[in-house]
Design a binder for these strands. Structure first.
Lengths: 197, 197
DNA sequence: GTCTATACCTCGATAGAC
DNA sequence: GTCTATCGAGGTATAGAC
């Protein structure tokens, strides 16, 4: 965890891997491609990571951690309205913070495999947990569709190249707005956190 | 185009390929996997298709054709409201008709590559054309976000395993409803096509 | 027209020199 | 920490038997 010359290559490697993953997919990205992009050899990559799976896990890890914490925090809220609001805001923040990574999560089977071993039983687990909160207990089809469109829409739109040049603050406001509309939540007046509904 | 024993293997091959593509991604699916699932050999696969790219193109082709026709038809509408309504309804129908294929389109880089050579300059071209219609001329960020969330949300939700057991008619109604709400279109009373707004 | 056998390449991964 | 060399497995693609 200490910053140093060793971490430098490791960090560049993960950044490069994420970029290539979004361009070609996880399975479509070879270690050779990563090595070439960094100007090193495949064997040098293996000095930093034992396997390719270890790379994908390391790429996904920051997102997983935030997602995990978000789901836990949302679940502790007593009132369902508060659960939904917290989850929605937290998810939008997470999408903003990680942008392209979240889009990868939603779609790439390679990432799904990598997350499978983590808490909650994998990406599917996180998705189900979030859907459960957003769609409520014993949801009808309408509620399930709304929750699904909200989560996937926010994730894909947030990670889309079409919005890459929109600054964080603006995108955050827009995604929150569309999410509230989809879930039938009242629109907030200010951006400051509120303790009561 | 004639139905026969030769076409049978070809059809089964494409169905199997689509299923495997959705499970493992395009790049994550090998010809060996397709051949094994069909109980034939890799070389037998090459009798039906010259390259793997040709398979992915053939898998995507029905969706491409429908998408192409939809965008053309929408563009011929005079009033913008009619363009949006026609595109939204057509897109929902298309998602229902192809379900998992559309979800693949939205996400898999392998599919994107395969479509790249087709009309409109590839998947990106279709996406941009649809976004252009839904978000209107000279759109602000809000309109662009709404259009993006609508398209990606409907596509991903429609292709999601979570909704696989919802029947077509019900899912169609729900997706149309959420799309209209997102785009601020008036809700229809009946499912029958209307000629005036 | 359909599949077997096989060529050839790149994959992920390892060993050991520097 | 990065390199060269190499492995076995599995990838795409082809030649030719039936």
């Amino acid at each position: 965890m200490t910053a140093g010359p060793a971490e430098d290559t490791r960090t560049r490697l993960l950044q490069t891997a994420l970029r290539l993953f979004t361009e070609h997919g996880v399975e479509g990205t070879s270690l050779q491609m990563i090595a070439d992009a960094l100007g090193i050899t495949k064997a040098a990559v293996y000095y930093h990571f034992k396997t390719k799976a270890e790379i994908t896990e390391a790429v996904a890890e920051p997102g997983i951690r935030d997602l995990d914490e978000l789901v836990r925090r949302a679940a502790t809220q007593k009132r369902r309205g508060a659960q939904v609001d917290l989850l929605l805001e937290g998810f939008v923040d997470l999408v903003i913070r990680h942008r392209s990574l979240v889009a990868l999560f939603s779609s790439d089977p390679g990432i799904a495999r990598a997350i499978e071993k983590s808490a909650h039983g994998g990406a599917e687990g996180f998705g189900q947990a979030m859907l459960g909160i957003l769609s409520g207990p014993d949801p009808d089809t309408t509620a399930r569709v709304n929750a699904l469109v909200t989560l996937t829409g926010i994730a894909m739109a947030g990670g889309s190249p079409d919005l890459a040049r929109v600054d964080d603050e603006k995108l955050r406001t827009e995604l929150l707005d569309v999410g509230r509309r989809l879930l039938g939540r009242p629109r907030r007046r200010s951006l400051a956190p509120v303790s009561t509904l």
